[in-house]
């Protein structure tokens, strides 16, 4: 499995409030992704294309547990590679089925619009545009399986562990 795509470059300490601003909480799921990076990079969501890759600096995704990784998937982002990925955001990426990689210096090795090619099994990222290759570290098998399944929600749903919460809309149906 190779992941190839056009790169967007973001800086250090991009937090989850920038990724998924509070206003998105109030919107239906299908509209939440419109608000991604509205504060730090207005208009970006209109330029991003399916198959694009995010490259970022240190501590990408610091902050809360909100499901920002899911919004990147909805926007068509295929992978995230950062100098360092915040621990909780890393968990959220993997568990929502979005490959994420720690790769020191990656943010200095890509320009916006460069083409990246990631080999998750070899643990490398190649800048196809410049020919530069970097090590990303290899994703453990346990996490690759979660990503391959499309995330934990898909895995749990397949196994019958989850049902739509709309099944619970009937209230006040218990006897008095």
């Amino acid at each position: 499995m190779l992941i190839q795509g056009r790169v967007w470059v973001f800086g250090d300490n991009i937090d989850t409030d920038l990724m998924m601003p509070h206003i998105a909480f109030e919107k239906p799921r299908s509209e939440q992704a419109k608000w991604v990076f509205r504060t730090n990079r207005p208009g970006w969501v209109d330029m991003v294309r399916k198959g694009d890759i995010l490259v970022a600096g240190n501590n990408f995704g610091l902050g809360s547990s909100r499901p920002a990784a899911l919004l990147f998937r909805q926007l068509g982002i295929d992978a995230i590679v950062a100098d360092s990925v915040n621990g909780l955001f890393y968990r959220n990426c993997i568990n929502f089925g979005l490959p994420a990689f720690n790769c020191p210096l990656v943010s200095k090795s890509f320009g916006e619009g460069d083409i990246a090619e990631i080999d998750p099994h070899a643990g490398t990222i190649l800048n196809v545009t410049t020919g530069l290759s970097l090590k990303t570290g290899i994703l453990p098998e346990m996490l690759l399986q979660i990503i391959a399944a499309g995330g934990l929600i898909e895995l749990l749903t397949q196994d019958g562990y989850l049902e739509p919460s709309s099944n619970y809309i009937e209230v006040n149906n218990e006897p008095c």
Partner: peptide, 23 residues
């Protein structure tokens, strides 16, 4: 204890487990 995301907290409730990296 550490914070988990919305997908994995459902997993923890359903199956009683979560994955962790030893940092």
């Amino acid at each position: 204890a550490r914070g988990l995301g919305d997908a994995e907290i459902l997993h923890a409730a359903c199956k009683g487990t979560a994955w962790y990296i030893v940092y």
